[in-house]
Design a protein around this nucleic acid. Structure first.
Lengths: 337, 337
DNA sequence: TTGAAAGCGGTACCAC
DNA sequence: GTGGTACCGCTTTCAA
């Protein structure tokens, strides 16, 4: 194992100079810096993690807690884990996983042992027990998602309410007076609060714009194709020709397939807006207007907030809602007659 | 922050006694142990991770590398990550995530900086570049999966070949002379080697037992419902009444759905065996004979091997293939006519 | 059965 | 611009 002493000797300088050359916390003459960097490369030096943690006050590790409930949508979840990991690495941090029971219990453990510099919280539930823990661990914690009681917490999330308003607003703009919100499973509305937030936004705008908002869940706990098809058929019977979809990719496929079966062309006979989808909607059979949920965006911000808190000391905890963005793809048509 | 000194003072002993009382590496009288444990609990003492890493030679962290290719099956992958995490925790280890580019690059980094005690490798490709890295990092590495060139590596995996043999064997036992293997996507056969291993086992036994083995892939890169349906219809036309399924849950559903549409009852008119499924087959519309792939089993073994290597020094690298287990559920019927 | 003390490999202060 | 060195908090010899 190469130590900083060997690097110092090889470069003919003291260990403190090596340390400063690498951290940049003190100016080092160009020449000696070059020599040090040469020695580092030649010896394949990498600072010992344990020593760095002990001497410095940074571990360069973030914890990522994820309960992984049985009904977690795996692809979306993986996208968030990946995004968090990428965001952390960009700032020089590694991710330590706290899954399952460890999601809560582990928070205290890693905080008490100074294993991590900050904690990122995924898969946030309305009554998330991690909110309580976050308030009294001394470790900076950032929620990616917003629990009902978010007092004193730092949270990052897409502004789902604004997304709901935006989706309904655009359809209302196109002249639609009846809109169906094809939403998440019923279980999701109970388990998380972001579906409700989107719904509220949609309802508010519907009321303002005086349009009727019909609702259709995509199933009880998992997507039920027959339920979805029936719900869509009913909507069409009612005369609805505008849909806001806030659901997984398979529900999108089901909607587009069912509309096709009914001989309706998206962007002509019917209008569809996909809201807060975390997957790539461009792989669907028809291009859809989208208000995307970009995991990387949330995670980048979360990491940035954590880093800022570490660098600048205590910051005001607050909710950071990312404004939704509307991407047109021609799936919204003017209402007819 | 509570340190070992404070605990020592509170218990009226020296810090070394505290250390030994907690690690158990030296006998400590019952009385003093009680006092120390009391102090620990009262002060909420948790050893500093950095100090432990530096002084001891253990970080109590395992790295978990997962490239997360675009076509990774998210639910299965998540099951493995969770299983690895649980297995590691049971032995007192935390999991550090190395995703994406870090999957390879990170291995060297965490090894050189002594951030982890061992590395677990997920989502193994036939020509996995991590095999090369594993051979020359000084850190014990265990593959969950088997790359083509596994010389000098420690690998853990289900014995897919045996699983293939077992599945075909049972169907042959039931008198079937034509069997269709409804397999993975074509991309999967290129990207991983476990589908090929299962296929080879199936083919071997088919040859031995003189049964015809037909093949049907479930799609090019992702499941294509129409492709699957067509393939099943062809198989039925050919007179095949026995299926081995080695694919994701949606393919299982498609098979069962299509058989139903054809008026065939599983366990009576047709026989179906699900091989190496990592999901819960009991939630399918019909109970299926299963040769399960249990992530927890592989991960427990992988962690055990890693721990053993740390405790006992170098061990012989070798391939550990977990014998498949056949679980009957009445979905295999005697062949007719 | 217990204690004292020498490191582990860095960081960052204090001098020069 | 550079070097010396006192820690950081724990593990583990060595001694009693």
């Amino acid at each position: 194992m190469t130590t900083i002493h060997e690097v110092a000797r090889a470069a003919g300088v003291s260990i403190s100079t090596v340390s400063y050359a690498l951290s940049g916390k003190r100016p080092v003459s160009e020449k000696t810096r070059q020599r040090i960097e040469g020695a580092v490369r030649e010896l394949g030096y990498e600072p010992d993690a344990g020593a760095r943690m002990l001497a410095g006050r940074r571990t360069h590790i973030f914890a990522l807690t994820e309960p992984l409930r049985a009904d977690t949508h795996a692809p979306t979840h993986m996208a968030f884990v990946l995004a968090a990991s990428v965001a952390a690495r960009r700032q020089g941090y590694d991710i330590l996983l706290l899954t399952d029971e460890q999601a809560s219990e582990g928070m205290n453990r890693v905080a008490a042992s100074n294993l991590v510099d900050a904690i990122l919280v995924l898969d946030v539930a309305p009554d998330d027990e991690r909110a309580v823990i976050a308030r009294d661990v001394g470790t900076p914690t950032v929620f990616i998602g917003v629990p009902d009681d978010h007092q004193g917490l730092t949270c990052v999330d897409l502004d789902f309410e604004a997304a709901g308003r935006l989706a309904v607003g655009r359809l209302a703009d196109a002249g639609h007076r009846r809109i169906t919100l094809l939403g998440q499973t019923e279980a999701a509305y109970r388990r998380s609060n972001f579906p409700r937030r989107l719904l509220r936004g949609a309802q508010d705008t519907a009321a303002e714009r005086e349009v009727v908002l019909d609702r259709a869940a995509s199933g009880a706990t998992v997507t039920e194709p027959s339920t979805v098809r029936t719900a869509i058929a009913s909507a069409l019977d009612r005369g609805d020709r505008a849909f806001v979809v806030h659901a997984a990719d398979d529900v999108h496929e089901l909607l587009l397939g069912t509309l096709e079966e009914h001989g309706l062309v998206v962007g002509e006979d019917v209008s569809v807006v996909s809201a807060a989808a975390s997957f790539d909607t461009s792989s669907l059979r028809a291009p859809l207007d989208t208000i995307p949920l970009v995991p990387q965006q949330s995670c980048d911000l979360a990491v940035e907030l954590a880093v800022r808190r570490l660098d600048e000391g205590a910051a005001t905890p607050e909710i950071h809602l990312i404004p939704p963005e509307y991407r047109s793809a021609g799936s919204v048509a003017p209402a007819r007659g």
